[in-house]
């Protein structure tokens, strides 16, 4: 069984700042992996590397057995063209911390845009699928609303529907609830819980410990650009092995 995501000694620097200092891991198909860690530990940068929004400086990264951003021939690496990178991204959905819904489009238009323009689906097919998706995330009555007319939680649910509309093999979540008011976090987490049971692979960067413990199949704890701990949720939350993870958890859980 090929891993859905495989990272080998991934390094990433922004100028002189080294953000990822050799990250290696594998995510199995259908797995829900939660990445925890203090801010600045490289969690977000790492998942942005998975769909090539960031270029890695060293190491190798594969999604579904294919190298991300490059083509290997012999021992040489060739950069992929813009349209080749774009085609691979259609298999990787991403949900952003700040939703990033297209401001000039209604909820429905946001969801059908990529299926129609990128996948070249006929409009009726795309609209039918999008309507179903929006209903699934509980927004059947908001299809014609613009993002500015929706609450943060509603916007994030539209964003999840938009990512799902491309029928990706894997979904990346970049702190999906961090920009939300407390009472809206639950509705987004509920949608994500529902997804976790459908068998899609999920990589979730989050600060929601409850979600990680309940829904995650596996916890990866990062600090200072490295993976410090990689464990099952039960083991991780009951007895973290590293001192760093212990102090992180005690700070987060005690407030």
């Amino acid at each position: 069984m090929t891993a859905m995501v495989k990272a080998e000694a991934v390094h990433k620097s922004f100028g002189r700042l080294e953000v990822l200092k050799g990250v290696s891991l594998e995510v199995d198909p259908g797995q829900v992996m939660c990445i925890l860690g203090p801010s600045g530990s490289g969690k977000t940068t790492f998942i942005r590397c998975i769909n090539h929004l960031e270029k890695i400086n060293a190491g190798r990264l594969w999604v579904d057995g294919e190298l991300v951003g490059y083509r290997q021939s012999g021992d040489k690496l060739y950069e992929l063209r813009d349209n080749e990178v774009a085609r691979k991204r259609t298999e990787i959905g991403m949900v952003f911390q700040r939703f990033n819904l297209f401001g000039h489009m209604t909820a429905l238009e946001n969801v059908v845009e990529a299926p129609i323009r990128v996948k070249k689906l006929p409009r009726e097919t795309a609209v039918r699928a999008a309507t179903d998706l929006l209903e699934r995330v509980g927004l059947a009555d908001k299809v014609d609303n613009y993002p500015s007319q929706l609450s943060g939680g509603q916007q994030q649910r539209v964003a999840i529907a938009r990512a799902l509309a491309m029928e990706p093999d894997i979904l990346l979540f970049d702190e999906p609830t961090s920009a939300l008011d407390p009472e809206m976090i639950g509705e987004v987490l509920d949608v994500m819980k529902g997804l976790a049971h459908t068998g899609i692979t999920m990589v979730v960067v989050t600060h929601e410990m409850g979600f990680a413990r309940e829904v995650g199949d596996r916890i990866v704890f990062m600090d200072d650009g490295r993976i410090v701990e990689d464990a099952a949720p039960g083991a991780f939350f009951a007895a973290p092995r590293s001192e760093r993870a212990r102090s992180f958890l005690s700070k987060i859980l005690s407030h």
């Binding site: 769909n51 929004l53 774009a86 085609r87 691979k88 991204r89 259609t90 990787i92 959905g93 991403m94 952003f96 990033n100 819904l101 297209f102 845009e113 990529a114 323009r117 990128v118 964003a159 938009r162 990512a163 491309m166």
Partner: peptide, 8 residues
Amino acid sequence: EAAQALGM
């Protein structure tokens, strides 16, 4: 970024 992540 959102558009690129969708494969545009």
